[in-house]
Write a protein that binds this DNA or RNA. Structure first.
Lengths: 214, 214, 214, 214
DNA sequence: AATGAATGAGAGTTCATTCAT
DNA sequence: TATGAATGAACTCTCATTCAT
C-alpha cells in the first residue's frame, strides 16, 4: 500500500518536473522565440536546476521537437471540443475559425511556436501541418460527399486545405498585427463570404446527382 | 580597351564584393535561416575574409535589415515585369500568381527570408507586408470600382489582402513541401476557382449602373 | 577525518576558483597592465576554462572594478597591522612608509593596478584615493590638534594629503625603477627629513662654509 | 629658384602631414588615452587616409614611442622659457610650478599622455622621467652648492627629485580632480611651505596651549 | 533524480597592418 | 606619396552540454 502510494507520488513528482519544463518552454518560446529560449531561461522559469533539464530531454533540440506536437495537440483538442460534430459546410468552418481565434486569445504564444517551428523543428512542423491537413481533408471529404463543394473534386482537397490554412494563419497574424486593429468579427465575416455561398461552398443540389468536375 | 578594363577595377571591385556578400547572405539565409547565418559562413561563401564583412555592413543585424528589402524589391520588379498592366480581375491574379511561382522557382530561398524576417528583421518584414498589401489594395480597389467584387465593400479590402496573401504564401510552401508533389498548374487552378466566379470575383453587371455599397 | 575533507569540496572549490581568478588577475594586471589583461591570459593562469570566468564576473570590466578594491583593502589592512596605533607625527609616518614598502615588495604589481585604475576603473580609483586620503586626513588632523603641524592650517590638510601621497607614490616607482638601485632606507630617510622639521630649502647660511651632511 | 621653392614646398607638405598626424595623436591620446587611440581615429582627425599613417610611422607603437618625447619637449621648453635662469631656491621652484600649471591649462591632455606612457610607452616614459630629473638634479645641485639645501647631501638629490616630481604630479591631478575645487594658488602656497624652511612636522610646542588656527 | 560549476566551441566584432592602385 | 579595401588574428562574451557531488 504505502509502497505503491510512494511510488506513484514519486512518478507524479517526476511528471511535475517534466510538466513544469514543458510549460516553461512553451511560455518562453511563445514569448521570445526559439532562438532566445536558452536552457537557463527555461529551467529558471521551471524552478529547477540547469542540469535537471537533461534528465528529461536529450538536448535542446529534443525539446524543440516536442514543443509543437504538445502545443498542437492542445489546439486540436480545443477545436474538437468547440466544433459541433454534426456541423457541416460553412457553419462548421465558422465554428472552427471562431474556436481557433479563442484558442489564440488564451495562448498568444502558439502562433510563434508554430511559425518558428518551420525552421527550428522542421520535422515537427511538417507533422503538425500534416495532422492539421488530415483533419481538414476529412471534413472536406465529407463536404464533397454531401455535394457541398461545388466546383471542386477530390484531388483538389489537399490544395484547398492549404489555402484554408493559409487564410486562417494570416488572419491570426492580422489579429496580432500592431498597427491594424481589425475586429475578429469582420474578419470572420469576410472570410466566410469569400469561401461561402457562390464561392467555395454551394448549397447541395439534392435533386440532381453530383457531377461537378473541375 | 585596356583603359576601359582598368577603369572598372577600383570602384567596381568594391561593388563586386558587396554583391558577393549580399548574394552569399541570401543564399545562406534562404537555405539555413537567419539564426544559422553566421558571418563566417557568409564571408566564406563570398570568398572574402571575415573582417571584410564589416566594411559593408555595420553589423549582422544591419545585413538582416537589408536582406528582405533587397530580395523583396527583386520580387516586386519581377512581378511588375510579368503582369500585364491592363489585366484586371481574375486574369491579373492568374498572371500574378504564375509570376510569383516563377520567381520562387529561381529563388527558392525567398520564402524563408520572408517568413523569418518576421522575427529577425521585424521592421523590414512590416514594411514589406505593407508594400505588398498596398499593391493588392490598389488592385482590389480598382476591381471594386469595376464592380468586379461581388459581395465585398471597401472596408473589406485589407482583410481580403491578407487572405489572398495567406493563400499565396501557403501555396508557395506547398510548392516547396518535400512530401507533396503538387504541380503548380493544379494549384493555380484551384486557387482561381476558389476566388473566381461565384466566389470573390463576379461578372460585372454592365447593364445596371454601378452602385457600389460604401 | 574523511568526513571533514569531503565537506570542504563543493563550496570551497568554488571560492578556490574565485580566489584563483582574482590572484591571476592581480598577477596579470600587475605585470602587464589592464589593457593587456585578456580573459584568456587570466583564465590560463588560473588554470580554468575561458568560460569559467563568467561564472564569477559579469564582465571583464566587472573584474577590473573589483581589482583595486580587493588589492587596496589588503594594503590598508597591512598598513593598519604594521603601524602602532599610538604613534604620531614623524614616527607614525616612518612606520607607515616602511609598511607600505614592505607591502610593495610582496606585491610588486600593486602600483600598476593602482595607477592604471585611474583609466580602467575610474570609480574604484576615486574611491581608493578618497579612502586613502581620509585616513591621511584624520592622522593629519590629529597632528594639527597636537600642534605638530607648524605652519599649516586645517584647510591645508587635503592638499597636504595629496602631496604626501604623491611623494609616497613616486618613491614606490623609484623602488621599482629598473636603472636606479636606491635602497629603501635612504629613501625613507630623505623623505622624513623633507617633511620633518626644517623643510627642504633653507636660507643659505653664507657666513659658515657648507658642511651639511646627511 | 622655382625648383628650390617647389622642393621646399613639397618637403613642407610632407612635414605638414607628419605634423597633422602628431597633433591628432596628441589630441586623441590626451582626450581618450592610448588604448582608445586607434589609427582610424587619428588619421580621421588628421584628415588623411588610413594607410598614410604608415608612411610616417612604422607602427602604432612607433607613434606611441614618439608621443611623450614630443609632448615632453614642449613642456620642458615652456618651463625653460618661463623660469628665470638666475632664480634659485624656493623662488625658482615657485616659478617652475606656476609655469607647469600654466602649461597644463593649455595642454590638458599632457598628464594623460604622461601617465599612461608608463604602460604604453615605458621606454619613453623612463627617458622622460630621466630628462626631467636631470633638470631637477642640476638645479638642486646648484642649490646645494649655494648652501640652500639644509640637511641634504649630494647623494640625496635623486630621491629629492622624485619626491618633488611626485608632489608636482599629484598637484596636477588634484587640479584636474572632478570633485575637489582647489585653487592653484593655495596649492602652490602649501607646497612651498612644505618644502620651504621649516618642513611639515614640527616638534609640538607643549609649553603653550594648542591654539590651532582654523 | 537533482544540482550547478566547469567546460570549450563558436559567436560577433574590432582594428593594426598590408598592398594593389 | 596617398589611398582605402582587404585581411585575419585576437578579443569579449554566450550557452548547450557534462559530470562529480
Amino acid at each position: 500500500m504505502s509502497g505503491q502510494t510512494r511510488k506513484r507520488t514519486r512518478r507524479e513528482k517526476q511528471s511535475d518536473t517534466l510538466e513544469a519544463l514543458m510549460s516553461a518552454a512553451i511560455q518562453v518560446v511563445g514569448d521570445e522565440g526559439y532562438a532566445a529560449a536558452s536552457i537557463a531561461k527555461i529551467t529558471a522559469l521551471a524552478n529547477v536546476a540547469n542540469g535537471t533539464f537533461y534528465n528529461y530531454f536529450d538536448s535542446r533540440q529534443d525539446l524543440f521537437d516536442q514543443l509543437l506536437p504538445v502545443a498542437g495537440e492542445r489546439l486540436i483538442a480545443h477545436l474538437r471540443a468547440n466544433v459541433a460534430p454534426g456541423a457541416t459546410g460553412l457553419e462548421r468552418e465558422r465554428q472552427r475559425i471562431s474556436a481557433y481565434f479563442d484558442y489564440l486569445r488564451l495562448n498568444p504564444g502558439f502562433i510563434r511556436i508554430f511559425h518558428e517551428a518551420e525552421i527550428h523543428a522542421p520535422r515537427a512542423y511538417a507533422r503538425h501541418l500534416e495532422a492539421y491537413l488530415a483533419g481538414y481533408g476529412q471534413a472536406l471529404g465529407r463536404s464533397l460527399s454531401l455535394n457541398e463543394l461545388g466546383r471542386f473534386s477530390r484531388e483538389d482537397i489537399p490544395v484547398l486545405g492549404y489555402l484554408l490554412m493559409g487564410m486562417q494563419d494570416y488572419m491570426a497574424m492580422l489579429l496580432r498585427a500592431p498597427g491594424a486593429d481589425v475586429d475578429a468579427g469582420r474578419m470572420i465575416s469576410v472570410y466566410l463570404r469569400l469561401i461561402g455561398m457562390g464561392g467555395l461552398f454551394v448549397e447541395a443540389d439534392r435533386s440532381a446527382p453530383a457531377t461537378a468536375k473541375s
